[in-house]
Simulated scan of single mutants.
Amino acid sequence: MQEAVLLIGHGSRDPEGNSQFEQFVEKVRERNRQTRIELCFLELADPSIGETIDRLAAEGVTHITTVPVILLAAGHVKVEIPHILDQARLRHPHLTIQYGRHLGLHEEVLTILEERLQEAEVSLQTYSEGDLQEDAKGASYDRSNATILLVGRGSSDQDANGDLYKLARILWERTGVANVEVCFIGVTWPDFPTGIKRAVRTGTSHVIVLPYFLFTGILMKRMEEMLAELATEVSHVQFTLAQYFGYHPKLIDIIHDRVQEVATGEAQMNCDLCKYRLEAVHHHHDHGTHDPHRDHHEATHHVHPTGRR
């Protein structure tokens, strides 16, 4: 049996964004040299999903694991990609095509966001320690008095938009910042200018714009331009734009996990970010074998009605 893993990128009108996805897939290959890894795009770039599957079938591949390298599940992940895969199955009835999960609410997504936050804070601290006039923008950086503006692409799918708000809440609890605001660069509301205004109204002296984007592209560059313009309108707040995910090694770890889920046939609940699951896994490594899902249910069923144990 000849197997392949097919990583599906969204595709961008910006060639630089597509190039970054291609370079990322090459880094995935470097970490998994024993596995054949191919790439394709859902739209706006070539090769397409269908074309790539047809080529792999013609080359004798008999089993394909597909993983959408997409952060949140909206219409692309829920409808369009499954439809394209169904069409490919009809064309190649002897080809096994399995569909893995998108990147989604994975623990390492939070790790990447936290590290991008820390990198942005280094520039803030350097700025604060520089030779500046004594004005509000020269105030020393203090995380407990900072606001994160988490920016997503935006979707017409309320479930996908809601997942970004869930990440924002967890990010607020984990980082100790004063506030985490959410906005979107397209499709839905609150839009980016509104997000900036809301962040400013929190009264903090520093706003860190944290893009929830994998790679650069038209929307990422539009955000950079808009922030540069909007920041000039506010004299008492310092803005810093953090880096998008890029080639972060934890992103490769997430891809590995999604492929392994398909290989093992593992049934998944919505518990990638569940603290009980994570604590159970850590306990398993430290103290021996047990069932983390059993611990999850025991933990959740033994919580006092007030929320306290």
Rank of each mutant, 00 (worst) to 15 (best):
E3V: 05
A4F: 05
V5K: 03
G11P: 03
F21R: 02
Q34N: 11
Q34W: 06
F41E: 09
I49Y: 01
I49F: 03
G60D: 13
V61G: 05
T66N: 11
G75E: 07
V79L: 11
V79E: 12
Q87N: 15
Q87Y: 01
Q98K: 14
G100V: 04
R116M: 07
V122M: 05
E129P: 00
G130V: 00
D131W: 03
E134S: 13
A146S: 15
D157N: 15
D159V: 14
A168V: 03
E173A: 10
N179C: 05
E181M: 07
W189Y: 10
P190I: 10
P190Y: 02
S205F: 02
I208Q: 02
I208Y: 02
L210A: 07
I218T: 12
R222S: 04
E225M: 03
L227R: 12
A228R: 11
A231E: 14
E233D: 13
F239R: 13
G246M: 10
Q260S: 10
E261Y: 09
V262M: 06
G265A: 06
Q268E: 08
Q268F: 04
C271Q: 04
C271V: 06
L273Q: 02
L273G: 03
K275L: 14
H290K: 05
P292F: 06
H296Q: 06
T300S: 06
V303G: 03
T306G: 01
T306N: 09
T306M: 00
